[in-house]
């Protein structure tokens, strides 16, 4: 073992990449769903409409995390 290398790890850095990629969408989902629940609590009669709109927004947010997941396999 040479003196300049003190520690070494091998494996795929992709795993860390996914962790980072999940951060933003995680926060986004929290805000999105939390706000929807808030809206539902304030106005239960529009709960269905809110849920549908939330799911469409959720589609946009969630795809970011999933792209990170897919990229881990591709690159």
């Amino acid at each position: 073992m040479d003196l300049t290398t003190l520690a070494a790890i091998d494996g795929s850095i992709n795993t860390i990449g996914y962790g980072i990629a999940a951060l933003g969408p995680g926060i986004g989902l929290g805000i999105l769903i939390g706000k929807t629940v808030e809206g539902m609590a304030r106005q239960p009669e529009v709960a269905g409409q809110l849920r549908t709109t939330m799911l469409i927004g959720l589609a946009f947010v969630e795809i970011l995390a999933l792209l990170g997941f897919v990229a881990g396999f591709i690159y």
Binding site: A59, I63, L66, L67, F69, V70
Partner: peptide, 13 residues
């Protein structure tokens, strides 16, 4: 594309 990736990636994961 997002429909495909969402479903497939969820099942793979």
């Amino acid at each position: 594309a997002s429909l495909v990736i969402r479903l497939t990636a969820n099942m793979v994961a």
